[in-house]
Structure formats: structure tokens, C-alpha cells
Design a protein around this nucleic acid. Structure first.
Lengths: 236, 236, 236, 236
DNA sequence: TATGAATGAGTCTTCATTCAT
DNA sequence: AATGAATGAAGACTCATTCAT
């Protein structure tokens, strides 16, 4: 999300595109996202954000009344980004495939923004508006979408009749935990990462999460032999 | 940990009893813990900490060279507190009982300090000393202890022969996630809490986590019928 | 150097004329020079400097990263000022005239900044950068210039063949001493100044210093009758 | 002056002598002198002085109402010390010998305290009381004493009839300058000191100063051949 | 519209001084 | 008398925000 400059392909008339095709406001938000991720909200200075965005400090305040407004907007954009395409992935594949690919995608989306996500979770403690953006929108909305999917399966007799919202929440929680915890372990103990490559670790853990989730909720139990030998943090 | 002013155990008769029976340094750390939890590290001002501790601002600096030193010390104390008595609970009870009671205790310990814990996790991003305190000490040390417990069971043929550290990490992660996520849900949606009482929710989720963990690692599988009806966030 | 607000050369007619024609940085340095002279480095507060400069306290730090940087810059500017035009005065006049006019000029230059000079000499004890500015640049560079002048005279057979640098240092030292001591006497005993006017005292003492110096170094000795009747402090 | 602790000549019981035979007040002043010399007045903290004196911080204020009072007292003590024995040295020797040995002694006295002396000269700018101590007492009193000596020689027809006070002041100034300047050169350019040893440099310069002074004031002029080959800073 | 110099309230930190023990 | 913990005023420095150009 909010990737740097973006060369873009806009053109005026015939023009080869003005320096940045991202409107000023987007540019500032992108810069802010970067700096927030690096330094946290309080640690980020408007001067550094301006420098990163390549605008004057004062310009920021033409687009955002206060630094906090900027935070809230960035949070909102992160939320939207994270939600984007969430349903389009619940395709016609098997449950197993659907869930796994959905989760893989979220992982890919969140990991490059993980620092920013952490900052937002943290700031959510202090700023209700951020809380609303992050949890009210992303988490609950995602859970909502999945709930509907879940509910449909229940009606079809495929899933057991447990509270769909709670069930789904546990899936979301497990994934969320895995990614957070994995990052924390990496930071605390860099050796952690070498032991096995990110991608393999992801696949193993996601598979496990989905395996358990589906086993846990399916009306008819599959052969339970499939517990992989070595689950990772956040797993089970 | 670091509870308010000092409930004090002033003795009734004869005691000289100095105003606070908690030494000054403890008082300041307790106050700092409170304010850090409320406002975050940067958001906390030494002046507010001083007010909370009931001392002059300058007094803080008689005990802590810098505000950051105060943060690190609070982190250390939180770490110690969290670790305290961790093994004494791995008693002679059944695995199920041992793990459950251990987790219940951690829950009780962490929940009142949850905001502080979140702050510390966040600050760990920026301050290596805090990282060391929180992850180096608490997480890894706890995992270490549990690993040894786990390994013993493996040798006895009770648990499957999977990497003990990784297995244990998944348990710790699941608990950690549950508590974090539960708190987030409460904050974002107060109604969440009313639906069912904290204690019941805890028991249900912890039971589920332990159930899954043990089922997942036991060499001989128990009857797998036990999926409780309504798991919560972080669970499965 | 760095005199007050800005004598200004605002042109009468038509000029847009910005309030101060001295750029902000100069203004702050001028103000700092004044306050340093009045209170010493540690005694000077950034708030007083700001008030003196007619700017907000924060403004100082847009131009100087720290108060000490401000000190060093002021020292540098004092050094440059003091050096300025030092050689242009070694004209084609007689040795006697050349040296005297050079010294008169230095006297005029230094006297209004004497308090500042004293502060800089003092701070040189504690700050190597200031030491470098004051001694490395002013003293040694001036001595260097004079040394060359001296050396030339030696080669011409006019001066005795003594170490030029040492000889010159003694001249510089004598002048320096005279001015320092004279100021000290004035401060300690205001009556001192009334006894005879500054200018006359200067001339008398400088003449004496030069007289002795030249007599001391000339290969062929002049008639030694010229000892004025009443030498002053620092003189001989 | 005011040398450190003073091991004293203690003996078991019955001795008059408490741990240190320097009374507390003296000890504090000695410690303060050291720290002032090292750090300057503002740079010196009462806490460091207390540590140096081996007393509690509060103790200082039993003896000196304020830190500034301590400064003034130290200045006074320095003044007294510097003056001590000043006349006893004007013995029956020749003028040349008398003056030289007097100056040698002052040099020996001042040099170890040079940093303190510099601090006092500096602080004299800001504190009239210190000014009074240093200039009112030391300089003028010394000049007074010498003046009387000088005046006697004038009456005896040995010295020319010039203002004795002014003449003497020039001598004092020359010595003072030499020592200050020499120290400054040493600090700014350590190589300076290696070129020739302190003692030799002192002798050469003092001899020159005295030579010039006496030549300058004697009624009958000596053979003027005596200009040493290589005068130093402060000389001539 | 964009700028960036200027602002000044707010921060952490120091340290002379006080005072209960 | 001596202590040293506590104080709080004051200082250097930061930074979000404003506003004249």
C-alpha cells in the first residue's frame, strides 16, 4: 500500500506525464505511511514527512488540518487497501483452496506494511478514530464477509451450526497472530528467519491454521491424519 | 504488577509507618507504568509521571538518569513479574490441568497490565533494551521452560516427537493472540464484553487452546469429539 | 564586530527596505555576541539572546543547531573580523609608522568587543573549537603574517637575526597585555580612566611598546634617549 | 594554595586533630578551588565540590550561604595566598636580584593555580565582589607595596622620578601577561612547550622583563648590550 | 496554490538550595 | 553538626502549526 512515488501513466494532452501522477494528497499520505511505519506516530515529524513527500512542510497542512488527521486518513487508506478484493477471492474452488489463497493474499498484502500495521494497532489505543478505521472497518468488515460465506456453508449442511461470527473471528485471529508473532520473533531473534524461508514457513502455518479451522467446523470430519509435524508460532 | 500507590501493610499498633511503605523508586516505577499504559512512552510526560507518583519532577531523575531508563526499568520489572512463579505451577497434575492453570494465571497477571504490555511490545520496535527485556527474557525464557517440560514428555513417549520449541511457541502464541485480540474486540466494541462474562470466555477459549494443543501433540489421540460449540477470537 | 541591530544603509527613497537589512542569522549572532559579552557563555540564556535579537527562541535553533554552535560561530566571526585588513596596513611607511598604525587599528577593533574577547579566551579553555578559532586562527595567523614581514627585514639586514616568530609573539603579547590590563584597571578602579584620556594613554603605551620592540630587534640601535616618562600597565 | 586533603599528622587519642586537620570550611574551599579551576564557576556543581571535599552536599551550605559566597571566599583566599610573603622577599640584594626572585616566587605560586586564576579573572567580569578581591586586593596591594619600594629608590636617586605606581604597574602587567600568554600558547599548541623547558623559558623572559624595567627606570643607564637573543611572548 | 521562515508552548533534564532526620 | 533526599525553577531544545509572500 501507498508505495513511494509511482511513476504512473497519466498524461495531460500528449504530455508525458507531470512529474508525479499521484495527486499531492496521495503523495503526502504515502510519505506519511512510510514515516509512521519507521518512527511511529509521535516519532514522525511533519518535517520528515514533508521531506519524504518532496513538498514543503506547510503544504501538508493544506491537505490535512492536523498531523492527527493525517494519521487517521492513512489508517483509513490502510483499511481500504487491506479490504480490497477480499471477496473476489472466495471463488468456486474448494473451501480449502479458497481460504488458503485468501489468506496467502492477505499475508502478501500486510507483510510489507507490517510496521505500519503495528503502529496503527498501537495508535488505536489512543485514538478512537484510528480504532474505528482499523477494527471497525477492517476486522469486523472482513469477519462480516467471511461470516456470510460461513453461514451459507452452514445452511448447506457443510459446516457445523456454530456461531458463524465467532468461528470466523477465530480464523482471522489465528492468522493475525501468526503474522504478528512471526515478525516479533524475527526482530527479537534474527536467526529465527534463517531456520526456514519465509514462504515455506507461511505455507506450513497457513495450511495448519486452515486445516484445523476446517476440521473444527466441518460437519463431517475428514481423516484426521493430516497434522503436519512441526507447526510454528501462531499456529495450531 | 506495580499497583498504584501502595495498599500498604502498615501495622496497626506502634508502627512508625512511613507514609508509603513502597520505596520511592518503586513508587515512581508504578506511576510510570500507569502513565505509559495510558499514553504510551512518548505521550507520557515526566511531569505527569511525577504528579501520578506524588513527587516533584526532579525527583524522578534522582532515580532514573533519563526517561528512557525509566522505560527500560519498567519493562524489566514487567518481565520479571510476568515470569515469576512460572514453573512452580507445572505441578504434578495432569498435563491438561497443568497447562490450563498456568495459562489462567498468566491471563490474570497480564490482563490488568495489558495496555502496558502493548506499549512495551510497541516500544520494543524502537528500543533494543526493551526488546531484550520483553522478548529475550519473557518470551524466550518462558518458552525455554515449557520446552523442557515438553521434551521430557517426548522422551516418555507421551508427546509426539516434534520440535519442542516450535510446538511450545505455538501454544504461547495462541494464548498471546487470544488475550490481545479479546482486548481489542472489547475496546472496539464494548458490547462484546457483555455477551458473555470475561471469566467464562477465558475458560472456554483457554480450554479450547489447550485441547487443541494437546490433541495436536499427543502421541495417542484422544476421542476427538470435544470441539466446544462456540470458540472465540484467537481460539480454535 | 556584529554591532547591535543593524546600522542599516536603508536608502531613503523608493527602497522596499526590509525591516532589518542584516539577515536573520547575522542578527542572531550579533545579539549572541552582546549577551555572551555581558553574561558569559553559560550565563547567557537562549531566551535572552532571542529577546535581544528580537526573534522567538525557537528561531535561534533554525540557524544554529545548538547554543554551542552559536558560540563557535560567533568566535569564528570575531576571529575573521579581527584578522580583516591586517596586512593591508603594513604599507610602505617606516617600520615605526607601520607597526603603530597596525596596532592602533587593532586596538580600535578590539576594545568595543573586549568583554566578548575575554569570554572567548575563557571559553577556549573548555571548547577546542573555540580555541581553534581564537588561537589557531587569530593569534597564530596574525603572528604568521607579521613573521613574514619580520623575516624580510632580517634578510635586508635591518633587524637582528632572532627567531622571527618569537620576536613577533612578544610584540603581540605586549599589545594584548596592555589592552587587557588597561581594561581591568578601568573596571576595578573607574578613577583610572579619568586620570588621562583613553586615546592619549593608548598612544603613549603603544608608542612605548613599539619603541622597545624596534629598539630590541633593530640591528643598529637608535639613540636610546626616548623612554617616555610615564609608562602604563602592560607597557614597559 | 588550598591543596587537597592534607593527610595531616594524626595520632590515636588525645590528638587535637580530627580526621583531617584542615577545618571543614578550609576543606570545602580547597575542593571548590579545584573544581572551579577545572570547570569554571558555572560549570562547577555543588555536588561535585561536595564529592571532592568528601562531605555531603548540604554541608557546604552550613558554611557558605550560597555557591557564589563560596566563590568569593575562594577568591579571597587566593588573593591572600598570592600576597603572602610578598615583601619579605624584597631583601637586601641588588634590585636585579630582588625583583627577579620576587617574580620567580610569584610564578611558582601562580602557575599551579593558573586555571583558578583565569577563572577568577573571568568571574571578576561578572561579580564585583570577586573583582574587589582579585584586583582591589592582589593587584593594587602588590603594586602598593612595590610602589613604596620604588619610591624609596627614587628618593635615593637610584630610579628616575616617574610615577611609581604607574611604573610598578607596568612591571606587574608584563609578568602577568607573560604567564597568561605562555599558558595560552601551551594549550593552543602543545608543541610550544617542548621547544624549551618551562624553567628556562621563565628565566629568560623574567630576566628580560626585569632588564627592561630596570633599564627603563634607572637614573643612570647600564650598558645596554644585554638583550637576550630570543625573547618570548609577553616579553619586551 | 505552495512555500518555508517564524513561532512559542511544551519537553526533558540539571542543580542550587532546603529541611527533616 | 551533618546528612542527602526532595524540591522546583530555569534552561536548552523540538516541533506542529501559522501566515506573509
Amino acid at each position: 500500500m501507498t508505495s513511494g512515488k509511482s511513476p504512473g501513466n497519466r498524461m495531460g494532452r500528449g504530455g508525458p506525464d507531470n512529474l508525479h501522477d499521484m495527486p499531492r494528497k496521495q503523495e503526502i499520505m504515502a510519505a506519511a505511511a512510510k514515516v509512521f511505519a519507521r518512527k511511529g506516530f509521535k516519532g514522525a515529524t511533519t518535517s520528515e514527512i514533508a521531506r519524504e513527500a518532496g513538498v514543503a512542510e506547510g503544504t501538508i497542512f493544506r491537505y490535512f488540518k492536523t498531523k492527527k488527521d493525517l494519521l487517521v486518513d492513512v489508517a483509513g487508506s490502510l483499511a481500504v487497501e487491506t479490504l480490497k478484493g477480499i471477496m473476489s477471492e472466495m471463488s468456486a474452488k474448494s473451501d480449502e483452496e479458497s481460504l488458503k489463497s485468501l489468506i496467502y493474499n492477505r499475508l502478501e498484502l500486510i507483510r510489507p506494511n507490517l510496521d505500519l500495521v503495528k503502529v496503527m494497532f498501537y495508535e488505536a489505543q489512543f485514538h478512537p478514530e484510528v480504532r474505528q478505521m482499523i477494527f471497525g472497518r477492517v476486522i469486523f468488515e472482513a469477519a462480516q464477509m467471511l461470516s456470510e460465506y460461513f453461514e451459507a456453508r452452514v445452511k448447506m449442511g457443510i459446516f457445523r451450526d456454530v456461531d458463524p461470527f465467532a468461528a470466523v473471528r477465530s480464523l482471522v485471529g489465528a492468522v493475525f497472530t501468526y503474522i504478528m508473532f512471526d515478525s516479533v520473533l524475527k526482530t527479537a531473534n534474527p536467526a529465527w528467519e534463517d531456520s526456514d524461508p519465509q514462504e515455506a514457513r507461511d505455507r506450513r502455518n497457513v495450511d495448519l491454521i486452515v486445516d484445523i479451522f476446517l476440521n473444527g467446523v466441518r460437519a463431517t470430519r475428514e481423516v484426521p491424519g493430516g497434522l503436519p509435524g512441526k507447526p510454528d508460532a501462531g499456529g495450531i
